[in-house]
């Protein structure tokens, strides 16, 4: 609790992500309905909700892996539209970690990490290697740097994926169910890394069903269902006094096991 209070102070007034009236359709299926969300610098947001509720789609809209069709999305002062240049600018500053890790299997761990800094940011190779090694140190696997992704366990791969995203020195990190594809004994090592990252004041948006993690680091928990934000609140209030029936039902399902 004390930890939570300490972390919360890091959220500042500056708004780094704003979604205003965002709508999106897959064909005729209305997947996102009137999403409004402002995120302050340093804020840590957890998104939860039943499968198919549009959680992934929301965060994939934030780095234009999906294109929204109505409303505005503004990231770090850049408006996401059809302008390719804007999209590239935003992607440089927004890191993403996927459920399936998506490491590049033909490149070693180190090469996975230095690829984007050297090719996108034109960072000198030696500098990129130093940066990558320090970040691999932070996710506690520097000794695996010269192995290939296929030789690592799921938990190790996901930690590499986090390091790879951090190598771009992003302002914002997006996580889409980072522990859902992991064997139970590996979940903790990944969550520990994410808690460590939260303590550095990184702006984070994380889709997860790890409610313990949510309580520990979140400034705000958002509950989504059927493409809408149903409820959002500070974690303590969210978990102890959920207001909407749908939230209560969902929480009873995820917390019961």
């Amino acid at each position: 609790m004390a930890n939570n209070a300490k972390l919360k102070k890091q959220g500042s007034e500056e708004i780094v992500i704003s979604m205003n009236g965002v709508n999106k359709w897959f064909g005729s299926f209305h997947v996102l309905r009137d999403i409004n969300l402002n995120v302050h610098k340093g804020e840590r947001i957890i998104i939860c909700g039943p499968s198919g509720s549009g959680k992934s789609t929301v965060i994939r809209c934030l780095n234009a892996l999906e294109h929204h069709q109505g409303g505005d999305i503004n990231i770090l002062g850049v408006t996401l539209d059809n302008n390719v240049h804007n999209v590239e600018t935003v992607r440089r500053d927004v890191g993403m970690v996927f459920q399936q890790f998506n490491l590049f299997p033909h490149l070693s761990i180190l090469e996975n990490c230095i690829l984007a800094p050297t090719w996108v940011k034109k960072m000198p190779r030696a500098e990129a290697v130093d940066l990558a090694m320090s970040l691999l140190e932070r996710v506690k696997i520097p000794e695996q740097a010269h192995k290939y992704p296929g030789q690592l366990s799921g938990g190790q791969q996901q930690r590499v994926a986090i390091a790879r995203a951090l190598c771009m020195q992003p302002e914002i990190m997006l996580f889409d169910e980072p522990t859902s594809a992991l064997d139970p004994e590996m979940i903790k090592e990944v969550l520990d890394v994410m808690v460590g990252l939260a303590e550095t004041g990184m702006t984070m948006i994380c889709v997860t069903h790890e409610m313990g993690f949510a309580r520990k680091v979140a400034d705000r928990v958002i509950f989504m269902d059927e493409g809408q934000i149903i409820e959002q609140n500070e974690p303590e209030a969210f978990f102890s006094k959920p207001k909407s029936d749908r939230t209560k039902l969902f929480l009873s399902q995820v917390l019961s096991h």
């Binding site: 590239e88 992607r91 590049f104 690829l115």
Partner: peptide, 26 residues
Amino acid sequence: DKGQYEAADALGLGYWKSMRLIILPQ
């Protein structure tokens, strides 16, 4: 895997770089 394209996009690699460095080698 579609995830490879997405990971390359998310890192900001752009079409040609992601083809050359990620997709085509595999």
